[in-house]
Amino acid sequence: MHVHFLDPFHNGTSLIHRLDPRVKLVFTLAYIVTASLLPFGAWAAYVLLLAIVLSVELASELGIGYVLRRALLATPFVLAAVPLIFTVPGTLLFTFSLGAWTFTASLEGVERLLSIAFKSWVSVQMAIVLAATTSFPNLLMAMRGIGIPRLLVAIVGLMWRYIFVLVDQALRLLRARAARSGATPEMGRRVGGSIVWRAQTTGGMAGNLLMRGFERGDRIYAAMAARGYDGEVRAFPLPQVPLTQWFGLGAAIFLFALILLFSILIVG
């Protein structure tokens, strides 16, 4: 068995695929920071942001449908912002009663909820494009590029390598459990044991995974030491970012700053 579905990277040769991973990472962060800094209700600016992310999606040749579908994953969290409709003061929109309580919705509350949902939606889209157009080794390089310590980058790199091995193991355990979770043909018997028992079985599997993790950690260490590893993480120096891409990144950040400035002046 082999987990492929885990890797979000989509191989390709689009403009976005070919950008330097450090440029992509910084651009994505700048975009998300911009979205986060925009005031609530700055709809003109939101539309611009949406236009930017949609353009990037087009240029990435991932298919807008793919990105939008994945972006839905973040939606459940919007629930957390729903109470704002009733707690943000402002123009009365409607009231309704539920038992002893009366709820008063305000226009400002609705606007804030929609603003948050929108910011979150465009941000997650940009993050999806980053992960889908940048292979993990390149993401590691970008992490080094923005100054994350080599030691941490090395740990994350090794982690990613073994996620696939250990997720395989986890799925094998789950499958083995499923294969033995039968029901008797007799009617009226409770199937599957108590919740506590089920949780303990699952816990046993988690313990099993960790135990194998420890053992594998020792073996990997031996394999690393056998090739001269001495605790210091070494790697080639990073290549230069092409000058044109620097300019492109600078221009994009300038654009974000303009959008911010305008929306704060206008909405604020």
Binding site: L158, A170, L174, L209, L210, G213, G217
Partner: peptide, 28 residues
């Protein structure tokens, strides 16, 4: 790093992977 030295990278990396994989385990 002080505690584990050279073993830090392999052990932390593989255990992070184990926790990640462990989060896939669930029970109804």
């Amino acid at each position: 790093n002080r505690d584990l030295g050279e073993r830090q990278v392999p052990l932390m990396g593989v255990l992070a992977a184990a926790i990640f994989a462990g989060q896939m385990l669930n029970f109804p």
